[in-house]
Write a protein that binds this DNA or RNA. Structure first.
Length: 569
RNA sequence: UGCCCCCUCGUCCAAUGGCAGGACAUCGGACUUUGGAUCCGAGAAUGGUGGUUCGAAUCCACCGGGGGCAACCA
């Protein structure tokens, strides 16, 4: 495992991770259960942005396509004209592509409205559906409760002719919203609530973002989804646990509509991630109520947000791989996600020096006006990439304020009075004096350097405990840093106390802006979107948006910080 | 309270009647021009009780716990 990644790997790839769904698909392939190519679909409703929970589903559905030589459709389940928008369609497409997947077809449930309507007529003709003319309250009351049976609608036994006539007039737009609905005729006493004559079509004189005003009849999920799958020849319809009960109507419908070897629905647990929320309703509130700057705010668990935060698609896919797929509802620790991000970034991004809280250092024995260009590798010894840049060194430098302690504790390895440390890629320096301002705060350090330690090695073999990062004062570039942290203060924001709102546990320090940090000049010429590791600080990406006109970097994730743990003790 | 699903290290996932294993996290050590990375090591789990079986995390029963379902949302 310690082999560099750029070496050729052994012929056989590691066996793909197996979960209960892939096991099932493998069996179905072996038995040719469906008599056709394995087919999955990713079926978002375009009413918000894709988030990391969608990423899990995307990786599953497209992963199965790739592993079993199948196909996978991107289908928008756009059956609700009130909530959907083309901008969400575009965002989903961009995010799936960014993750590195290709769909075999881009499809829309709303394109099936005609076909779906025809199935409605078919069901009516076969006596399996009827037009109900109760009000929505009457329908709700008639459904009964989880412990008591429902009651049949007085319209339940209309003749096929009457049903057909009504249905056609519903479609023709003769009735106002809510006047009638088409319902499946199943069992009003069914122990599964979903099977108590589920609604199939409803009247909505509404404008659809894609179909315009062509329809006033809109199918409901339980009607549209199974049939859309069946129409497309899907074999494995994968969805999350909360649709478990809907599986009964799914099977009833595809059989009632005459599909041979219809798709089979299988449910898996949706992703829950500590310190965040993943329901679109709640994400929408964060956006609308301005807790974040938008769907792509780097604090958002959306794919767009993570992209802007600097997360790579590879890291996101690796994360989805490690969390696995199972039927048990489970929360994943943030550390698991952060590990996936660091693990990926560590191997691919250049190291650069940036001082976040500058403290001026004057090297008293370094000639005034002199500037040296020191060689600095972009990558550490254990990352198999090469490349380097020059960093200027001069008499006046900045170091990190936290890298100096006037009265150091025992385990503090960094700079202190009369102590020697290494400047990364530079020289050994020793602190010889402290300058304080009128308020008693340290404003400047006086140091000496050892000219024999250029590059960071001492010819006499003496060691220093610490190595710190720095920039040359005159050449450093001012920049702003967006330091992002968890969006919520508690691991499960959905579980706030009674009467409390998840918005009450938004972390007020989820974004801390540092103005006028000092980054080494080499970063000035890089394109927006470049990722770095700021040595000893964290991974950052340059952001297209700058309030100040200065270069702005978003912190993707901090480095693991074992010093922080020592400090706590 | 009806139906359905689920319960394995702190967390996530394996083990498909036959040695409970991996990853993250934690702790310790080595190495180190990032208190990063890497390497080595340690601790850490089958909810409970019965039953079937030569043998049970796995099958059965009961108990306990968690979750989903009563939108003209998806």
């Amino acid at each position: 495992m310690s082999q560099p990644t750029n070496e050729t790997s052994p012929a056989s790839p590691p066996p793909a991770r197996r979960d209960f769904i892939r096991e099932m698909v493998a069996e179905d392939v072996a038995s040719d259960r469906f008599g056709r190519q394995i087919a999955t679909r990713f079926p978002p409703e375009p009413n918000g942005f894709a988030h990391i929970g969608h990423a899990k589903s995307i990786c599953l559905n497209f992963g199965i396509k790739e592993e079993f030589n199948g196909r996978c459709n991107l289908r928008f389940d756009d059956t609700n004209p009130f909530t959907e928008d083309i901008k969400y369609v575009e965002a989903f497409k961009q995010d799936v592509e960014w993750l590195g997947f290709e769909w075999d077809a881009e499809l829309y449930a709303s394109d099936y409205f005609e076909t779906l309507y025809d199935f409605g007529e078919l069901l009516v003709t076969n006596g399996k559906a009827y037009v109900d003319s109760q009000s929505d309250e009457e329908i709700r009351e008639g459904r009964g409760t989880v412990t008591s049976a429902g009651t049949e609608s007085p319209y339940r036994n209309r003749s096929v002719e009457e049903n057909l006539d009504l249905l056609r007039r519903m479609r023709a737009g003769e009735f106002p919203d809510g006047a009638h609905v088409l319902r499946a005729k199943i069992d009003m006493a069914h122990p599964n609530m979903v099977m108590r004559d589920p609604l199939l079509l409803r009247i909505r004189h509404a404008h659809h973002y894609r179909q315009g005003d062509a329809w006033c009849l809109y199918p409901l999920y339980d009607f549209a989804h199974p049939l859309s799958d069946a129409i497309e020849g899907i074999t494995h319809s994968l969805c999350t646990l909360e649709f478990k009960d809907n599986n009964d109507i799914y099977r009833w419908l595809v059989h009632s509509c005459g599909f041979q070897r219809p798709p089979e629905q299988t449910e898996f647990a949706r992703l829950e991630l500590d310190y965040t929320v993943l329901s679109k309703r709640k994400l929408l509130r964060l956006v609308n109520e301005k807790f974040v700057s938008g769907w792509d705010d780097p604090r958002m668990p959306t794919i767009a947000g993570m992209r802007r935060r600097g997360v790579t698609p590879e890291a996101l896919r690796a994360f989805c791989e490690t969390i696995g797929v199972a039927r048990k509802p489970a929360r994943t620790e943030l550390a698991t996600f952060e590990h996936a991000v660091r693990n990926d970034l560590n191997m691919r991004v250049p190291r650069v020096m940036c001082v976040t809280k500058p403290l001026k250092v004057v090297i008293e024995n370094y000639p005034e006006g002199r500037v040296e260009e020191l060689d600095a590798s972009y990558y550490p010894h254990d990352v198999p990439l090469t490349g380097s840049r020059k960093v200027p060194f001069s008499r006046e430098l900045y170091i990190e304020r936290d890298d100096f302690m006037e009265n150091p504790s025992k385990k503090f390895y960094r700079l202190a009075p009369n102590r020697e440390v290494r400047l990364r890629y530079g020289y050994f320096i020793t602190c010889t004096g402290i300058v304080k301002d009128s308020s008693g705060e340290i404003s400047e350090l006086r140091c000496t350097y050892d000219p024999a330690t250029r590059g960071g090695d001492s010819p006499d073999g003496r060691k220093v405990q610490g190595t710190i990062h720095w920039v040359s004062a005159a050449q450093a570039i001012d920049c702003d840093l967006n330091l992002y942290d968890k969006l919520f203060t508690i691991p499960d924001p959905d579980a706030v106390e009674e009467g409390q709102d998840f918005l009450s546990v938004v972390n007020p320090e989820s974004l801390v802006v540092i103005e006028r940090a000092k980054v080494e000049p080499s970063a000035g010429g890089d394109p927006i979107g470049s990722r770095y590791q700021f040595e000893r600080t964290g991974y950052f990406v340059s952001d297209p948006v700058s309030q100040s006109g200065r270069l702005t970097f978003n912190r993707t994730v901090t480095l693991r910080d074992s010093w922080a743990k020592i400090k706590e003790k």
